[in-house]
């Protein structure tokens, strides 16, 4: 299958300001791709290039197998802008109907169903809505024509936790139906649970593309065991992946890299009364990418 996005050497300068430098990236059909980076990293720039809102300085990009300049392909895309601006005077419903009509028709029932799910108010002029309630209208218009490819620039901005959950459920449904999503965010936690892969941009460059499952496997995990009797330190030393080992009486604390299997097997020889395993702290890894302290991490896993 052809890639949903195929960017090669994509570069954008705003005059002399760098927006994005030499982005080469494939997004595969059916995946959810999280696009992460600090403020001003180039996320919005990338997304606008995909949608032909702005034109690349160098390089090129194909979206859904077509040149990004072809207007017809945009019928198959749903887009939520990062700086969403809605028409002030118009009520949400009229605006959504207009957008739906230009995209080739969207059943009114589908708009209503989405509005109900997100608890959006479509009857008042949009200037009267709060930030989060505008964002809901932005989400509805992106999802309503059931596009093959959803591009969401900071979709959760302004949404309360309940609506965020509903939104993530909607994203999962999109994946279930085999469609593709690209969503940007500042923090991993927001996209971690739905994304298959994440890409990290910093200062205009893509510094890493990682598989979330693989990352989780690789991540450092803090583990604690409590036994019914004191255990010998030797039983846990030199296990693969185990570091920072501290044995104090009947308790063992350590961090592990990768699979916990050897550690579990070692612990199983004693009587375990209590065990604590913290969620892998992926955020820590990402903060290293963000700040750019660790250049050894500049790798790109792309398959």
């Amino acid at each position: 299958m052809t890639a949903v996005v195929r960017a090669e050497g994509l570069t954008k300068y705003y005059g002399r300001r760098r927006g994005l430098e030499d982005l080469t990236l494939d997004i595969r059909p059916g995946e959810i791709f999280g696009y992460l980076g600090p403020n001003g990293a180039g996320k919005t720039t990338t997304i606008r290039l995909l949608l032909d809102v702005i034109r690349p300085t160098r390089g090129h990009v194909r979206v859904l197998g077509a040149d990004s300049r072809e207007a017809a392909v945009r019928r198959r895309i749903g887009y939520l802008p990062g700086d969403l601006a809605l028409e002030e005077r118009e009520p949400g419903r009229a605006y959504l109907q207009f957008l739906g009509k230009v995209r080739g028709g969207v059943p009114a029932a589908r708009i209503d169903a989405l509005a109900e799910r997100l608890d959006a108010d479509l009857s008042v002029p949009m200037r009267k809505l709060s930030k989060g309630n505008r964002q809901k209208i932005g989400l509805i218009q992106a999802f309503m024509h059931e596009p093959e490819f959803l591009i969401l620039d900071e979709p959760t901005g302004g949404l309360d936790p309940l609506v965020q959950q509903e939104f993530l459920a909607m994203v999962r449904e999109v994946r279930t139906s085999g469609r593709t999503v690209l969503m940007s965010s500042h923090v991993l936690a927001e996209v971690e649970h739905v994304s298959d892969r994440v890409g990290i941009v910093r200062a205009g460059r893509l510094v890493a593309v990682e598989n979330v499952a693989a990352l989780r496997e690789k991540a450092v995990r803090r583990v604690e065991f409590h036994f019914d009797a004191p255990v010998p330190r030797e039983a846990f030393e030199h296990l693969p992946g185990v570091r920072d080992l501290r044995v104090a009486g009947a308790s063992v604390r350590c961090t592990i890299d990768g699979r916990p299997d050897p550690l579990i097997k070692a612990a199983a020889r004693f009587t375990v009364v209590h065990m604590v395993s913290a969620e892998p702290d992926l955020e820590e890894i990402f903060l290293t990418y963000y700040s750019g302290e660790d250049h050894d991490h500049d790798r790109q896993v792309s398959a």
Binding site: R48, L51, D52, V53, A71, A72, V73, R74, R75, I77, Y79, P81, D83, L84, A85, L86, E87, L99, V102, R103, G104, Q141
Partner: peptide
């Protein structure tokens, strides 16, 4: 800023 969404319509 409302034009951004309009230019991403299939027109």
């Amino acid at each position: 800023g409302t034009l951004e969404l309009i230019v991403t319509l299939p027109v």
